Structure formats: structure tokens, C-alpha cells
Amino acid sequence: MLFDWHAEADRQTVACLDRPFDIAPDRGTFYTGSQLAELVQEFSAQLYAAGARRGDRVAILKDNHLDMALAAAAAARFGALPATISAVNSPEVHRALLARLDPAVLVISPGPLARAVEAGVELVGPRTRVVLLGERDEGTPESVLTRADLAGGPVPPAAPAGRDEPMLVMHSSGTTGVPKLVVHSAATMLGGIARMERIKFPVLASKHRDVAATSVSFAHGRIVSWLMGQFVLAPGRS
């Protein structure tokens, strides 16, 4: 609900992207806080149309971009459990992570899907609906859905998990083998470092006239606390 909350704020952070979102490739690179919230709700409707429901796991395996956080928020908004997975892992690692997750819906970029098909790796079983963030090509399995297939559905009612219930899954760096999955609740994710992000430290904290920039792995949970800080401090651009 972070995006919905920020959309009601008197002072909103404006997002300027280096390229359009993969979940909205035709929307450009400039978003107000209200537009970000609208996109989260829109993608929430698409995930729901794909079959995701409250309590289901939703895997988000896509090219690195801020919209990993938006896609995760879209799933968590109606009580599904999103897991953000970096696309730079190998198809074999992706298969291992997805086997552990057993997601109801897999959201995936064309690159990791094509690499899995080329390597002969079946990422998920028949029970998982696959949503491709791009266009089908000759090698795309027929069962794969696209955003166009899911457009136009109603936005499901907001029903996020409780403060101490699982809210978000991400993975470790994988330096010792297949990455480990880590589960966070709202309490563990938005406490601690996220609380530090919101403090208006003299000199260190962003001011309303500032521009804040980041270049990170957006699959990392750190982006959630960073976003909360940007929304609370509300620099002019982010």
C-alpha cells in the first residue's frame, strides 16, 4: 500500500526513469506519485486476471528495473506473496528457485525465458501461469500469456497481508551456490533500515529541492526501504 499512501500525499516524489518500465513500455519515463500508484493497481488487475489470488506466490523474474518493486507491490496489494528474482542468474538457477517457490504466476522478461527455452530448461510446471513482459516470438510456448491478454480487468480489492505475515520474498547473492530465498514481513522490511531512511538527518537527508538517484539491483529488498525514504522525504526528482 506504499504507493497508494504516497498518491494521497500533498508533496509527491516524481520518478524520472532511464528507460520505460517493462510492465508499461508505452508510458514513457516520467511518473508522478499518483501515476505510480495507478500503474501498481493496473498491474494488480493483470496478475489477478492471470489467476493469482490472496495467499498465492507470484514470481517476478525480469530485467533489472524499478518496476520490479511495482510488480511486487501489485501482487502484495491483494495479499499474494511476491518473490523478486534477478534475471542475470542462469536458467538452471532460475529453475531451482522457482521449484522452491512453486508460484501460481510467473512474470518473466523475454530474455530469461528465451535463454531457458534455448537451454532446454523447463522453468515451471503446468500449474503455473506464465506472463511474458514482451511480445511472443517463434520460440515462445503457446501457453504463455502477455499483458495484452490480461488487459481491461477490474482491480481487485486491497487486502494486504498482516504486519507480521509474509509480504515479500527475495534471494541472496548466490556466491555459495544457488541463492537462498529470504522471506520478509511488513514489520521486518519496513522497520530497522527503512526507519532510518525516513529520518530527516541534517545535511544527509534529501530536501524537497534535491534530486535523488540510484543504480542498484532492484530485485533486492533494499529498494523497498529506499522507496519509502524517497516518498517520505519527497525530493523533487527520484
Rank of each mutant, 00 (worst) to 15 (best):
I23C: 05
A24R: 06
A24L: 01
A24S: 07
A24V: 00
P25Q: 07
D26W: 12
D26L: 14
D26G: 06
D26F: 12
R27V: 10
R27M: 13
R27I: 09
R27F: 13
G28D: 07
G28C: 05
G28L: 02
T29S: 09
F30E: 00
F30S: 01
Y31Q: 06
Y31F: 15
T32M: 05
G33Q: 08
G33T: 12
G33K: 09
S34R: 12
S34C: 08
S34T: 13
Q35C: 03
Q35E: 15
Q35K: 12
Q35F: 09
Q35H: 06
L36Q: 14
L36N: 06
E38I: 07
E38P: 03
L39P: 00
L39D: 03
L39A: 09
L39F: 04
V40T: 04
V40E: 00
V40P: 00
V40G: 02
Q41P: 00
Q41W: 02
Q41A: 07
E42C: 14
E42S: 15
E42L: 13
F43V: 01
F43W: 04
F43K: 00
S44N: 01
S44C: 02
S44V: 00
S44W: 06
A45K: 07
Q46G: 04
Q46F: 03
L47E: 00
L47Q: 05
L47F: 06
Y48W: 15
Y48S: 15
A49S: 14
A49E: 06
A50R: 03
A52Y: 10
A52R: 05
R53I: 07
R53M: 06
R54F: 10
G55C: 09
G55R: 13
D56T: 13
D56E: 12
D56M: 06
